[in-house]
Amino acid sequence: MFNDQLMLLERAFLNSRAFPEERYYSHVLWAPRSSSVATFPGLANACYQANDANAGSEAWAEVQRQLSIIVAALEGAAATLRPVADL
């Protein structure tokens, strides 16, 4: 039962929409990044690009989208760690 929860925990951090420009990456916590931040690469990349002086509202919309993806992943991860009633 515990191993199943760990497997589901890892799956909670997979999102095929996290990196639309990189079709081979889907892990919300770990993936190649363009910034110096080691975790949450989608959010880090979006913030890095939005902080550019020429960035428009689309760049900040991407920051918000990436943050939403992270929140959904964390909520899913928390749900997998809830105690399971013994049968």
Rank of each mutant, 00 (worst) to 15 (best):
L14Y: 12
N15H: 10
E75H: 10
L87A: 15
P20Q: 09
N54I: 10
F2W: 08
I69Q: 04
A85Y: 08
I69S: 06
F40R: 03
A59K: 00
M7E: 13
F13Y: 13
S26K: 07
S16N: 12
L87H: 09
A78I: 11
Q49A: 15
R82H: 09
E10I: 09
P83Y: 05
L43V: 08
N45C: 02
R11T: 05
S26W: 07
Q5K: 05
E75L: 14
I70N: 07
D4N: 14
A72R: 14
A50W: 00
E21F: 01
E21I: 05
Y24N: 15
A55F: 04
N51A: 12
G76P: 01
V28S: 00
L29M: 12
L74I: 15
L43D: 05
F13M: 02
V71F: 06
A59D: 08
A12F: 01
F2K: 10
I69T: 13
T80G: 06
F40I: 13
R65V: 04
V28N: 02
L6I: 10
E62V: 08
A12M: 03
Y25M: 07
R33G: 15
R11D: 11
A55D: 00
S36F: 11
A46H: 07
L6Q: 10
Y24V: 14
L8E: 12
L81E: 05
P83N: 06
M7R: 15
Y25T: 06
L81M: 15
R65G: 04
A79Y: 06
A72K: 12
A55K: 04
V84K: 04
W30G: 01
A72N: 14
S35E: 06
C47A: 14
N51C: 14
V71E: 15
E58M: 02
M7N: 13
P41G: 02
L74P: 08
W60V: 01
L67V: 07
R33H: 12
N3K: 13
S36V: 14
E21G: 12
V37P: 06
V28H: 00
I69V: 15
R33C: 15
S26V: 02
A55Q: 06
E62N: 11
A31V: 02
Q66F: 08
P83R: 04
V84G: 02
F19Q: 00
R33N: 15
D52S: 09
R33E: 07
S34L: 12
V37D: 11
R17V: 12
P32K: 11
I69C: 03
F2A: 15
R11V: 08
D86A: 14
L8D: 12
N45T: 09
A46F: 03
S68K: 08
D86L: 13
V28K: 00
P83W: 00
R82C: 10
E62Y: 04
A12C: 03
L67E: 09
A55V: 05
F2M: 10
E58G: 09
D4Y: 01
N51W: 07
I69N: 01
N54P: 03
F2S: 11
D4K: 12
D4P: 01
P83H: 07
L81N: 06
A38W: 10
A79N: 13
F19D: 00
G56P: 04
R65Q: 10
N15A: 11
A55S: 11
D52L: 02
E62R: 07
E21N: 14
S35G: 12
A59M: 00
A73L: 05
G76V: 03
M1R: 11
A31F: 05
N51H: 09
R17C: 13
